[in-house]
Design a protein around this nucleic acid. Structure first.
Length: 589
RNA sequence: UGGGAGAUAGUCCAAUGGUAGGGCACACGGCUCUGGACCGUGGAAUCGGGGUUCGAAUCCCUGUCUCCCAGCCA
């Protein structure tokens, strides 16, 4: 997210459970507290806020949540839970021209999915419009705000620049009575959009631009998703946010570094009024290599058709990650592992991938799936015979049991598992070589069938050794490689989508002269394979569930595009591939 | 000669005056019916320069670099 709502941060210790206990994560008990938790601890110790901890997560409903927001969510909800405190969900809906109920629904779903619960504390800044209006009137009465008739361009002009002070608006010294009257009439709809604003009277010479008489109310005739046409004036973020925090009794208001410059203004409003004064604390937003965490840009990718919607599995949105096969635990653990600090940083995409592999290795059942099939015929195996072989579902967890796998004379293996002219260290199948078929027999390659014209290998002929059946006493013979396979007849067809980074550059926002992030869109971020064959047990797979395609990676049945007769799997993340790494290294030499 | 913030291995985070440590990544080895997982080993950092101190990543001075801010967005 660029300049979105302030985020809170993730808990270093994973999500709190309903009972307020803390789940474990990458960082363990010995770990020291991050700087925000240190502040919170100190505040509790000092008896500040009567020892209460009350945070909030304040998204603007103008887009879907992404993993950067997950950092904020984990922090806001996590810190509250760690201290038996509360965390509110508050929609920061002060700009009806950009917001929509579609987003408020999606945001709630995503937060719940991540594992957090705001109880009955679902709020909207728009709930406070009446109170906020009264506060604004109070400011005018106290001579601390005035109605300004300057146009947008003029306001900018009067604001000065980074190095030159601004000048007072000609309306700066307008009488309190006149401002009161005008503000009332702004609300009544007597003036056109953009014709007048209410401004705080602070200091046009302030080095901090935010303090140069910031606008606090503007006229916008737009239907608000909650208040409809009740209002035609809407409060600005700076005015709304601090007072909403105050109204809700928030103690620690966590947001990202972009709002550091706004803190003096946050404090100023609260100091002018007789209200509770929460503390704003800023932390560095999350950046991940080869992706972009900016709502502004994500919305562009969606609208320009660069991806297939907010939940496209290539998107770093929570809905995209979910559809890709990422789990809430893996995301929470990731957030806990990367920590919280104030310096700008770029977390390696590999860090995120590590998290999901770690979890799925423990939980995902192993299955056989051949993505790019090559026919393999076992010449000495009876033509009409079909054996049911027992296969372990997860070697990491015996409790997950076993299943039956059909084996027959004609199989499919992965095309890349056979090489007619194998390179050094190639432990797979090649003429004259032996390999084990996982859960089955050791086979030996005898010859290949080729297309006479193209030279393409059409089938591999092998013989099997009946004595080497997996589990059999005499099966101990060692071979260099083990391949996955499916029975040609009994396997079922499937489509498999292989995803990789959406961008080809670590930081796609760091562009050359005149370029932009679209220059680095990865043309190969999605590869769709339509001739895949998977073991028959997958016919009953439940959409959204994950499994490991042996030797390949973790995949999940796409909940949107998959049907009973046309299975579609999304690759969540490939397995670590030492062989590929070796080849790449060799190539580099 | 605007204001604010931040600089610790490739990367992310610790160490708050007392042995610079951990995760990821990387490399090497072991094990393995997944070239996965797992186990072991290793390389690798305090932005520069001064100062205070028995002792500095930490305190002081100075320099450099990076990020944010000129919406009637949040």
């Amino acid at each position: 997210m660029t300049a979105e709502e302030p985020h809170s941060k993730p808990s270093g210790n994973g999500a709190k459970k309903q009972d307020g206990t803390v789940g474990s994560s990458g960082s363990d008990a010995s770990a020291s507290l991050d700087f925000i938790r240190s502040i919170v601890e100190a505040d509790i110790k000092d008896g500040k806020n009567e020892g209460r901890v009350h945070t909030r997560f304040p998204p603007e409903p103008n887009g879907y949540l992404h993993i950067g927001h997950a950092k904020a969510i984990c922090l806001d909800f996590g810190i509250a839970a760690e201290h038996s405190g509360l965390c509110n969900l508050r929609f920061d809906d002060t700009n009806p021209t950009k917001e929509d109920v579609e987003y408020v629904d999606a945001i709630q779903e995503d937060i719940r999915w991540l594992g957090f619960d705001w109880g009955n504390r679902l709020h909207y800044a728009s709930d406070y419009f009446g109170q906020l209006y009264e506060y604004a009137v109070q400011l005018i009465k106290d001579g601390k705000a005035y109605v300004c008739d300057l146009s947008g361009d003029e306001i900018r002009e009067y604001r000065g620049t980074l190095t030159e002070p601004g000048r007072n608006s000609p309306y700066h010294d307008r009488s309190i009575e006149e401002s009161l009257d005008l503000f009332e009439r702004m609300r009544a709809g007597e003036f056109e959009d953009g014709s007048r604003v209410l401004r705080a009277k602070i200091d046009m010479a302030a080095g901090n631009l935010n303090m140069r008489d910031p606008v606090i109310y503007r006229i916008i005739r737009a239907t608000h998703h909650r208040t409809g046409d009740k209002w035609c004036i809407y409060p600005m973020y700076d005015f709304t946010h601090c007072l909403s925090d105050s109204i809700e009794g928030i103690t620690h208001s966590l947001c990202d570094l972009d709002f550091e410059d706004h803190r003096p203004l946050y404090d100023w409003f609260l100091d002018q009024l007789p209200v509770h004064h929460p503390q704003q604390i800023e932390f560095a937003r999350l950046n991940i290599s080869y992706t972009i965490l900016s709502k502004r840009i994500l919305v562009r990718l969606v609208n320009d058709g660069r991806v297939n919607g907010w939940d496209d599995p290539r998107m770093p949105t929570l809905s995209g990650l979910r559809r890709r096969g990422y789990t809430p635990d893996s995301i929470r653990n990731f957030i806990g592992r990367i920590g919280v600090a104030k310096r700008d940083s770029m977390v390696a995409a590999a860090d995120l991938e590590y998290g999901i592999r770690e979890e799925l290795n423990r939980r995902a059942p192993r299955v056989m799936a051949v993505l790019r099939p090559l026919k393999l015929i076992i010449d000495n195996y009876p033509e009409d015979r079909v054996e049911q072989l027992e296969a372990v579902n997860n070697p990491e967890d015996a409790a997950m049991g076993t299943r039956q796998l059909p084996f027959s004379r004609e199989l499919y293996i992965e095309r890349e598992d056979f090489r007619e002219d194998p390179p050094r260290k190639f432990f797979r199948l090649a003429p004259g070589r032996e390999v084990r078929l996982k859960h089955a027999y050791i086979i030996k390659c005898e010859r290949v069938d080729k297309d006479e014209r193209t030279g393409e290998i059409i089938a591999v002929h092998c013989t099997y050794d009946p004595e080497t059946k997996s589990g059999a006493a005499q099966a101990a013979r060692k071979v260099k490689g083990t391949l996955h396979w499916v029975s040609a007849e009994q396997s079922i067809p499937a489509t498999v989508r292989l995803y990789s980074h959406l961008f080809t550059k670590e930081n796609p926002l760091e562009t050359d002269e005149g370029g932009d992030f679209t220059d680095y869109l990865n043309p190969d971020s999605l590869e769709t394979l339509t001739s895949c064959r998977v073991e028959p047990s997958l016919a009953d797979a439940v959409p959204g569930t994950s499994c490991q395609f042996m030797r390949q990676g973790y995949f999940c049945l796409d909940p949107v595009d998959s049907t009973d007769d046309a299975l579609v799997f999304n690759r969540t993340v490939p397995l670590r591939d030492t062989w590929a790494k070796m080849q790449k290294a060799a190539k580099a030499k």
